[in-house]
């Protein structure tokens, strides 16, 4: 069976943050299929703990999480010189209407709807990251 996923993220280091292990694993596998190096964090606090050592080029984070949620995570990342320039994409559930607009206002680079649709996830992601200059060059090289 042919995988419909192009290896568009070859060489990228992407951090995924989600408190739901299944959701985290699906995202991790999809990103890996697209060629990315994936670091996972089971929550906001864990992400903050490892973000400096992991040095991701892109963070994809769920919003609703216990304790340190996606909003707090973003806020803390933006407060640190080392991390303030990492683009953060929000995973928004349609059960939380209004999160998308708020996410953009809050400083998320963009958003992707949950649940992740494996067929559309990578294409959505590539549409989003084309305007991240650092990643764009790599992306166009691949495409």
């Amino acid at each position: 069976m042919n995988s419909p996923i192009p290896r568009a993220l070859e060489g990228w280091r992407v951090m995924v943050v989600d408190d739901e292990p299944d959701s985290l694993e699906i995202a991790k596998r999809l990103l890996q299929m697209a060629g990315a190096e994936v670091i996972t964090a089971g929550g906001g606090q864990e992400a903050l703990n490892i973000v400096r050592s992991a040095r991701p080029q892109l963070i994809i984070s769920d919003l609703s999480m216990p304790e340190v949620d996606g909003w707090t995570l973003l806020e803390k990342l933006k407060l640190e010189r080392d991390t303030l320039e990492i683009p953060v994409i929000a995973l928004t559930a349609h059960t939380m209407p209004g999160d998308r607009e708020r996410a953009i206002v809050a400083g998320f680079h963009n958003h992707i709807s949950k649940p992740l649709d494996p067929r559309r996830f990578i294409s959505q992601l590539m549409h989003i990251v084309v305007d991240i200059p650092e990643l764009k060059s790599q992306l166009t090289a691949v495409i």
């Binding site: 069976m1 649940p115 494996p118």
Partner: peptide, 13 residues
């Protein structure tokens, strides 16, 4: 959603 996700992943295998 997890089921659908994994089923897709399975399909991609």
């Amino acid at each position: 959603n997890a089921m659908i996700g994994f089923q897709h992943l399975m399909l991609f295998s």
